[in-house]
Design a binder for these strands. Structure first.
Lengths: 253, 253
DNA sequence: GATAAACGCTGACGCAGCGTCAACCGCAAG
DNA sequence: CTTGCGGTTGACGCTGCGTCAGCGTTTATC
């Protein structure tokens, strides 16, 4: 019994293209190519194809299947064990993905359930938590527990509109800083505006402003790498230094 | 703060090629292309890229990520839930693959532990089991329990060499059948050889040959679709019929 | 014996998400 | 002035085929 591509394809439940492809990559050669160039397969090829399909079912790549079938000394057991291990890895990977996707879905659900004001409260709490983990200890040492708690309390009290204004002030501060640094003088008129903008920004969260505290904070901007990086990343190199000098000059007026 | 491809690539832990590709498919445009044609990114793009990478971590395809990020009314939750479902499907699929791979490994282990003669015994048992499930009932009805058991027992007693001979006889039978069918006469000399080859083949497993039983079996070859298909698949259409006629003629000599 | 339908063949492109050349340009340092 | 390190745009390669297009063969029908 012999088969053409179509017949074999139907028999084995694969496409004709697949058979031509397997021929092309040397995975399954027809028994014969007849005078018209047709591929002719026999029972032997049917058996081989069944084996190929079996291993393909296990999701092995065609190159490995080729080795398994045509290399007599190829270690099938080892190949299958390696394949099993890679499947286990994949399984683990998917398990992890599922965990993360699930978390993301829940996060969305929680957000959907919240009103706008609840979301804003959540947002502020995130900011406070972020600030606490980054600087909590240092600022408590410098300003004392009460001052920090009072500042957090004031921040919690901000309306959304007030928060937007605070952001806008900071943005203006950044822009001024950039242009003032071109001039280069931390005692000039632009530098004065900078210090005032910074004070304005501070007062959104500081219950009581004092020049001494302001000067102290300015010092920290230079000494603490994290504060320094915040300004330099948002503006440019030397921004923290320039801001400190401007504030120092302002507080001594 | 602005970044070139290299900088952003390092910052985000992706390759430069990836950034160019994301630009190409419209997933992440640089903030600006400068006079030299360089891609320039800002903090905004850093944020966007982080989001993209987050969703990519979840294994979402880039097209879906694009929708999630740039279509304001796109249903993220639905997308994630669909993604979760597809992950669950994949997980199930891998679980199945693992089961099959595990079985295959065990099959190999069992085979390795067997000696050649044990393997051959196992092979014969497989054949008997196959035969029993396919034809067990019918042949017991026709020939009786004892005859079938005796036949199986004789088959179990075959050496590997004998089995090979039996296969060779069947092969010669097939070839004769093919050429005899060209001539077309089931009473001719070639047909006689066919019937004798078939008898020779039978006697490997039949404890006692009789012309009546032989004729009966020949009838079954035509009436039972499965026997018929066996010959027609191995030879050609009409093979079962021709074989029966040849045997009938032979048993009446 | 002609014709149409059904089959066969060989390229070649497309898919996802980049990796990896090749060929070329811009800019600063030695 | 070269060298080296950036940047750029193509274009091919990988996997396992699906899907044309264009052309020859076989088979069924009239």
């Amino acid at each position: 019994m012999t088969y053409t591509v179509q017949k074999l394809a139907e028999l084995a439940g694969v496409s004709k293209r697949t058979l031509r492809y397997y021929n092309q990559i040397g995975l399954l050669h027809p028994a014969e190519i007849n005078a018209s160039g047709y591929r002719i397969y026999t029972e032997k090829e049917v058996d081989l194809l069944q084996q190929i399909l079996f291993f393909r079912e296990l999701d092995l790549d065609l190159d490995t299947i080729k080795s398994i079938i045509y290399s007599p000394d190829f270690d099938r057991k080892k190949a299958l064990e390696e394949h099993r291990d890679s499947l286990l890895d994949k399984q683990e990977h998917i398990r992890m993905l599922l965990g993360n996707v699930e978390k993301s879905i829940q996060a969305i659900e929680r957000k959907v359930e919240m009103t706008d004001s609840e979301k804003f409260i959540g947002f502020k709490e995130e900011k406070i938590a972020e600030n606490e983990t980054n600087y909590g200890e240092e600022i408590r040492e410098v300003y004392g527990k009460e001052a920090v708690e009072a500042s957090n309390a004031k921040f919690r009290g901000l309306t959304e509109e007030q928060y937007r204004k605070m952001e806008a002030v900071e943005q203006r501060l950044f822009e001024k800083l950039k242009s003032a640094m071109q001039a280069g003088d931390p005692t000039g008129p632009e530098a004065l505006q900078i210090a005032e903008l910074h004070r304005e920004w501070l007062e959104f969260t500081w219950p009581a402003y004092s020049k001494e505290a302001h000067a102290g904070l300015a010092d920290m901007y230079v000494q603490d790498e994290r504060f320094k990086a915040y300004y330099e990343n948002n503006i440019q190199e030397g921004a923290a230094q320039f801001l400190r000098d401007s504030i120092q000059h302002y507080t001594k007026l």
